[in-house]
Simulated assay, not measured.
Amino acid sequence: MNVVDKIVTLEHKETVRLDSDRLNGLYRQLGEKNALDVLCRTVEELAVRLSNCERFWRQRDWAGLRKCARSIVAIAEQIGMMALACVANDVAQNVDAGDSVAAGATLSRLIRVGEKSLTVIWDQQDLSV
């Protein structure tokens, strides 16, 4: 057996959780058109913040990363993206603990969960541009 036979490829699969009660409440409160407008803007804002978190990580801007991750928690909770909120909170906690390795690992997970969450909510709500 040669060394190449021992290589294992890890495949990351993330499960996302959406709180349908929060989404339904948003629709009841705002009406369909306004709720869709809010969701479109929110999805765009979360995408920008995920990108910003990655930039803060590359720049080693720990305060910026923490602040950005905490803002993702608040936004994600408002529209029922509970998995995204949980992982963003983990990033902020790792930054607070001064653990850059764990922060990097959880940031990678945040980006995976974020992309999956945004796709799921986009598809579920048929947020056509």
Rank of each mutant, 00 (worst) to 15 (best):
Asp5His: 04
Ile7Leu: 15
Ile7Gln: 04
Ile7Glu: 13
Ile7Lys: 06
Ile7Ser: 01
Thr9Trp: 13
Leu10Cys: 06
Lys13Gln: 13
Thr15Asp: 07
Val16Trp: 01
Leu18Ala: 12
Asp21Ser: 12
Asp21His: 05
Leu23Ala: 04
Asn24Pro: 03
Asn24Gln: 14
Gly25Gln: 11
Gly25Pro: 07
Leu26Asn: 02
Tyr27Gln: 01
Gln29Met: 11
Leu30Arg: 12
Glu32Asp: 08
Glu32Ala: 02
Glu32Phe: 00
Lys33Leu: 13
Asn34Gln: 15
Asn34Asp: 15
Asp37Phe: 03
Val38Ala: 14
Leu39Arg: 13
Cys40Asp: 09
Arg41Lys: 09
Val43Tyr: 08
Glu45Gln: 09
Glu45Phe: 15
Glu45Asn: 12
Ala47Pro: 01
Val48His: 05
Arg49Thr: 05
Arg49Gln: 10
Leu50Trp: 00
Ser51Thr: 10
Asn52Lys: 15
Asn52Asp: 11
Arg55Glu: 08
Phe56Ile: 03
Phe56Asn: 11
Trp57Ser: 14
Trp57Tyr: 11
Trp57Arg: 14
Arg58Met: 10
Arg58Cys: 05
Gln59Gly: 00
Gln59Leu: 12
Asp61Lys: 05
Ala63Gln: 07
Gly64Asn: 03
Gly64Arg: 02
Lys67Cys: 13
Cys68Thr: 15
Arg70Gly: 01
Ser71Trp: 04
Ser71Asn: 13
Ser71Met: 08
Ile72Gly: 01
Ile72Val: 15
Val73Ile: 08
Val73Ala: 06
Glu77Cys: 03
Glu77Asn: 14
Ile79Leu: 06
Ile79Trp: 00
Met82Gly: 01
Ala83Gln: 08
Ala83Met: 05
Cys86Ala: 10
Cys86Arg: 14
Val87His: 07
Ala88Trp: 02
Ala88Arg: 03
Ala88Pro: 06
Asn89Met: 15
Asn89Ala: 15
Asn89Pro: 05
Val91Lys: 04
Val91Gly: 09
Val91Ile: 07
Ala92Val: 10
Ala92Glu: 07
Gln93Tyr: 10
Gln93Ser: 14
Gln93Asp: 14
Asn94Pro: 04
Asn94Val: 04
Asp96Cys: 06
Asp96Lys: 13
Gly98Tyr: 01
Asp99Gln: 07
Asp99Cys: 07
Asp99Thr: 04
Ser100Leu: 15
Ala102Met: 14
Ala102Tyr: 04
Ala103Arg: 11
Ala103His: 10
Gly104His: 03
Gly104Val: 11
Ala105Tyr: 06
Thr106Asp: 09
Thr106Arg: 12
Leu107Gln: 06
Leu107Phe: 06
Ser108Gln: 09
Leu110Gln: 07
Val113Gly: 02
Glu115Val: 01
Glu115Asn: 12
Lys116Glu: 05
Leu118Pro: 00
Thr119Ile: 03
Thr119Leu: 03
Asp123Thr: 08
Asp123Leu: 12
Asp123Ser: 12
Gln124Ser: 06
Gln124Ile: 02
Gln124Asn: 06
Ser128Arg: 15
